[in-house]
Amino acid sequence: MVQLEVFLQTLVSGLLLGGLYALIGLGMTLIMGVMKIINLAHGELMMVAMYIAYWLFTLLGIDPYLAVFIASPALFILGVLIQKYLITPVIKVESILPENQVILTVGIGMVLASLATVFFKSDYRSTPVDYASVTWYLTDYWANSPIELSISLLWAVSFFFSIMITIAMWFFLSRTDIGKSIRATSQDSDAAILMGINVNRMRSLSFGLGAAIVAAAGCLFIPLYYLYPALGGQFTLIAFVITILGGLGSNVGAIIGGLVLGVFESMTSTYIGMGWAPVGRFSIFIAALIFLPGGIASLLHRRRFGK
């Protein structure tokens, strides 16, 4: 019975963690899908959004969940500006290796992290909201339960939102004109130009949207984590794993990829050792690259079209 409890609790935390991971990966999958560039400043964009949420909470007492409505538009603008004034010029020029853009994003990330250190100091910060430790316990509802499971409010909320954002994104990309144009750009930008789509605008838009989503992720994330200027790097890596696992540009793939990754990592932590969890993360990543190059999205497509 104890073993069952361990297993179930691990599963639950894995799913919740996966939801959170998916949220961070959603923005990246959009950016990578449309522009085919590796954005190594992704985590730093989240860091910026988290600082916005932090200051709104500390100075004005605005709840981090409400800060989404300020941080997301702000990051949208930042994303569009980065795309327009930094990335587009680099894409335009001829260069031997297209990976120039990657180094550009490294530079952007360096500047953002360093400016955060200069302006906000290297202090660790957090938003201690009142409901931070609200948790639901199985035994509270079912007193005779032989096992104890718990779900924390904050984690549940972020899980819920990542599902909602995925649905909203899916709706936007597949049902609206702009969304369709973005998808066309991502599939074949030359053809998209021929169809009269303003490809540059779509790129700016998708970078902005990607930044806005990661901003939302940051706002949902800050109540249950903490914040410091150098926080970005590790989450950039996680976002990559999810993007590849889920399939470039696929929202549904990203959320499934996130859940798979979360459960896989949690299981590794429990049954092999927490020190090995990152190995699990990157092995699954390499395996996905090699054996499932289209990601989970390709599995979904195969089913849908009956191939």
């Binding site: 361990v6 919740l16 050792g273 969890a277």
Partner: peptide, 20 residues
């Protein structure tokens, strides 16, 4: 005796094991 990577987000799996 278990180690974890600095910056880990979710300790619940390992803590569940500790609890058991």
């Amino acid at each position: 005796k278990e180690k974890y990577e600095k910056g880990a987000v979710d300790f619940k799996p390992i803590l569940t094991k500790v609890k058991s």
